[in-house]
Amino acid sequence: MVAVPDMDSLVNPQQRQFNPYTENGGTILAIAGADFTVIAGDTRQSEGYSIQTRYAPKVFRLTDKAVLAVNGFAADGNMFVKKVKQRLEWYRHAHAKDMPLRAIARLIQTMLYARRFFPFYVYNILGGIEDDGTGAVYSFDPVGSYERETCRAAGAAQSLVQPFLDNQIYFKNQLAAPGMSHPTHLPLPDVLSIVIDSFTSATERHIEVGDGLEMYVVLAKGRGLGGMEAIGGVQELSERTEGERLFVVRRELKKD
C-alpha cells in the first residue's frame, strides 16, 4: 500500500520547521588533582552514522592555566569557544593579566544563560588551576548551571564513563583498608592511566567515540614535572616555565 497524503495536509500550509541543531558525538572528560588538572577529549566528529573527520579538536587552551572542553553541537561549540576567547582577550587588554579560573567559570555561565531561549547546544567542562594553586574542574549544562567538581565526564559516552570515574576517582563503593583512608587526590600518572582507560573503554562500546585522544595537562606554579617525564608524546604549550605549565598528550584510539 502506498501512503497517500490526506487532502488536509496538502491544502493547509505545511509547518515544517528547520532544525538548527545537530549532534556531533564524541566525549570529553576532566579530572582535578591536588596541584594539576587533566582535561581530555576524543577527536572524532560524526553526524548520524557518518564520521565527518577523525581529527576535530574539542579541547581548547584558553590561558596557560585554563582549558575548555566543549561537546554537543560542533558549530555551537566552536562559536562558543571563539566568543569565550574573545572575552578573555578583552579582559587581558583591560587588566593586563589572565582572568582567574573561577571568574572564567562565572563568565561562561553568564554567556550560556544569555542564550537561555536559543541555547548553545553544548556541554562545557572547564579545567585548570585556581588562584590558590589547586586543580579545579567546572562543569556546565547548556544553559549555564555549573558546579566545581573533582571529576566529570560529558558527551556521548558520559553514561559509560562517569560511573567508572565514581569508582576509580571518588572510590565509591570501596572501603579503605582498616585504619587507612582513601586519598582525596590521585597522583598525575594514575589520573592519566584512568583517563586513557576510560576512553579506550568508551571507544570499545560507543560508536561515536574513537580515532584520537587529546589530554591537556595543567600543572600548578612551581609544581615541577612530577610524573610527566615517563610519559611519551608530550608537547608543551606554555611559553613560560615560571608560571602554570600547560602540556598536551596525544594518543591514538581505535578507528572502527
Binding site: 538548527p20 541543531y21 545537530t22 556531533n24 566528529q45 553526524e47 557518518s50 565527518q52 573527520t53 577523525r54 581529527y55 576535530a56 553541537f73 560542533a74 558549530a75 566552536n78 562559536m79
Partner: peptide, 25 residues
C-alpha cells in the same frame, strides 16, 4: 575544509558532501 547550512565545519584529507559522503568517501 567543509561548511554546511548549520555552520558545522571540519577538515580532512578526503572529503565529500551529500550522497558522496556515503558512497564515494
Amino acid at each position: 575544509a567543509y561548511v554546511d547550512l548549520l555552520g558545522t565545519t571540519y577538515s580532512a584529507s578526503a572529503m565529500a558532501t551529500g550522497y558522496g559522503a556515503h558512497i564515494a568517501l
